[in-house]
Write a protein that binds this DNA or RNA. Sequence first.
DNA 1: AGTTGTTTTGGAACATGTTCCGAAAGTAGC
DNA 2: GCTACTTTCGGAACATGTTCCAAAACAACT
Lengths: 225, 225
Amino acid sequence: MPPTDAPRGRTGRPPVTSRADILVAARRLIDRDGWEKLTVRRLAAEMGIGATTLYHHVRDKEDLLLLLLNEYADRIPRPPAAGEPRERIVAGWVAIHDTLGAWPWAAEVLTVDGFLTGLGDSALVQVEAILAAAAEHGCSQEEAVDLFRNIWYFTVGEILVRARSGGARGADERRDGFLAGIDAAALPRLAAIGDRWPGLSARDTYPDAVRAFVDGLLAQAEGRS
Amino acid sequence: MPPTDAPRGRTGRPPVTSRADILVAARRLIDRDGWEKLTVRRLAAEMGIGATTLYHHVRDKEDLLLLLLNEYADRIPRPPAAGEPRERIVAGWVAIHDTLGAWPWAAEVLTVDGFLTGLGDSALVQVEAILAAAAEHGCSQEEAVDLFRNIWYFTVGEILVRARSGGARGADERRDGFLAGIDAAALPRLAAIGDRWPGLSARDTYPDAVRAFVDGLLAQAEGRS
DNA sequence: AGTTGTTTTGGAACATGTTCCGAAAGTAGC
DNA sequence: GCTACTTTCGGAACATGTTCCAAAACAACT
């Protein structure tokens, strides 16, 4: 792995590319051909270099996506420092959710090990804002971290599940008859819902849910003190 | 895809295996060598058949894992029908969470398209119990589905993120210095937490979090009516 | 027995991410 | 110019899930 900076009197074979070049090319490829086309070999071909050369500048593909995500993270609107803490928390999460949801490829890296430790400053600002708001509301450090973690889990799950819920082909491709095969005697509630389930599940209720979660967690924290 | 049942006067080349055989072999392979060793070729070799033959009995690997999951779902303790609805909801989710968390390979299929429609009856019983408890508490059908969906997202996210948080190697492999590189002036809360973050994140707070989420969602539903 | 039709099998092939390791392309010292 | 050292490059190779399609193995019918 070549050093990020460029020391003067260097020795050895000169690099043909850099991490920055790779990120630019990856971004261009995504914008032009779609993010599914971002493969290691295609990216290397786009740059006119060998595929394995990429691995001398980037740990692996997950790392590449994480670096891309950090660049995009600048687009998340800067969280306001004023206002009621509870509302700031909700607004911060909605902003994070909307931004992540807009990049389908983000779903690939949300669960990587040490995700938070791989974030850059512009992304950590969002974390900081939520932690600060929680503290301002009276949460202890521990409670603030728990609040962040739990809503992070929720957000990740929401994005991942929805990202894989195929839009065009419909959800009933795997096994048709979600309503047909149900035993109405043993499972009355599910049978009653029947084919309304896909429609109900397709609605976006994230903001309401986050508010409910925040309310519940803050109430729990208050009850403990 | 050969029919699941075995009609008598059949024609054509006789199958060398069946979906049931495959599931048995897969289970044996997982128990013996670990779930990471469950690959299509290895499973086929274990059964003494060609790798591609498997695809005539199972749609794909995700489908195979989903079928396995349905078999294991029988082990989730049957939810009690009595007791306070709120407590039944929490207990139901904790049971689901603990069961799924015990099978690392379950994480691979939690987000597949149409996950719920691929579940068998023994798994749907758990869903039914939660919906029934929510209704008993006064939720409308819509609110009950939302409650289930949202806590499902949370549960999926929790399991996925934790499943990939490498236990042995530690979380600081990707980029060490979670505390070192932080700008204490711009990110005071994060800097204050510093290296306490991994320890705080490692704690299992799922039951408390689910209770908080349930409380928040039920309160929101009551506020609407 | 031979032909026809039907169903299943499985080897070859493909695209993917990734690792290995020998070769290339520089600088430093002589 | 020559050698030694250092750093990067990139083709070959591997394991993975998956698709294609020609052949195999059976039943039914003549």
